[in-house]
Design a protein around this nucleic acid. Sequence first.
DNA 1: CAACAAGATAAATCAGACTAATTGTGACCC
DNA 2: GGGTCACAATTAGTCTGATTTATCTTGTTG
Lengths: 238, 238
Amino acid sequence: MSASSDRPRGLHSSVLDALGSRIVAGELAPGQVLTLDRVDTEYGVSRSVSREAIRVLESMGLVAARRRVGVTVQPRETWNVFDPRVIRWRLDGADRSNQLLSLSELRMGFEPVAAALAAQRATPEQCGVLAAAVSDMVVHGTSGDLESYLDADTVFHRTLLEASGNEMLRALGGVVEEVLAGRTHHHLMPSSPNPDAIALHETVARAVRLRDPATARDAMRRIIDEAADAMREQFAEE
Amino acid sequence: MSASSDRPRGLHSSVLDALGSRIVAGELAPGQVLTLDRVDTEYGVSRSVSREAIRVLESMGLVAARRRVGVTVQPRETWNVFDPRVIRWRLDGADRSNQLLSLSELRMGFEPVAAALAAQRATPEQCGVLAAAVSDMVVHGTSGDLESYLDADTVFHRTLLEASGNEMLRALGGVVEEVLAGRTHHHLMPSSPNPDAIALHETVARAVRLRDPATARDAMRRIIDEAADAMREQFAEE
DNA sequence: CAACAAGATAAATCAGACTAATTGTGACCC
DNA sequence: GGGTCACAATTAGTCTGATTTATCTTGTTG
């Protein structure tokens, strides 16, 4: 199990999770107003915990609190769509396909750049981790063990983003991880991984080791393309 | 003035801002522990407001609260570096140059992709806005009015990201805006904008209108390259 | 020395009162 | 009839203090 739900750490966190899910699912529509009193009684908690939950939701742009009117749910345009919790709520809910397609287009942007940067900056150690991850992908890809394959894939992408030496690219590792996990756990993966995809991963790893940014970038671009295509195919089958 | 500081909306927000700035500035170093009592007395506020501020900081990954220990400042790796407030704190503080370079590398990833997508999806209206923005850039670029030039530049990039039709790319509009504003307000711009840069903007606008993704993407890539180079030059002069 | 028990500490939660901002309403005047 | 102004209702914001719970430290005991 690869870190899906964080620990429920506290009452406040549960309320936050519940309200957040309901908002991104559209059950609480934009414009709708809640009052703190209502939240208290509905979830059976004291005001401090509901206040703190609302405060965090506000900081994510999901709601806005105004005196004398209450807490109004905000439209999607104001959400912090990069907040890991927002991403997870959307991936877990009805908005999953939209979220996955958005994220794929986004990955098409930054992962090739990260690959190129990694080809200039990766340490020998990181090159080793990449090679090992590819090797694991080969093994578990042919054996059909999707969960282990996912682990190796995750290590590969996370290491590559870290090797880019750019903290913001590294921060997107969490996003990629969610995409990969969501894709396999929601059965948007082919039952056995595409051998071409594995070969491309190896190309990237080698290009990084050989300090060849252009090749790394192009191969990574093809990886994302392939993944998006495969996902679209699985969508079509549903 | 282009929306720099949000309204101070409440006591809690001031404490949040103060603590957040101090953390990203490194004045409160990772590992250091605060207690809620200390925060109360130091800022002269009640527990509820300090609790809510801490809660939001926790949701941004800047601190972690544990019973019997207190609130410990977290290392940079766990920060939500895409949170608009974190970005602004870093741009306003001592970490400005690092943040700007990170953001430039990031832009190199997603803006070309956004340009390519915009070339497939932009509405005629958006094409018009892009053309108008370029025209404004020409006027204010030659007249040397940097502030108006900034406004036009901002409109251009924001419109392009919106035209990509991808909500996550659009959400990065705020980031780009901060970069552009930070660059001119902190005098990292040449005193008069590079004519080549303006020409490239026009190329992008035309390519989008003519539905030519490849050209749009390449021109946009050159825009970011030019901007990064110019910024590095200004850094060197300091 | 290990295992376990008691105490201390600080966040987490609860409860209730008071403050302040904002919105709606109705009286009043022109 | 319409515009203005004062007042009342409403709801988030702030304050206070008590209680609960998790966790770390320390000391005791076998």
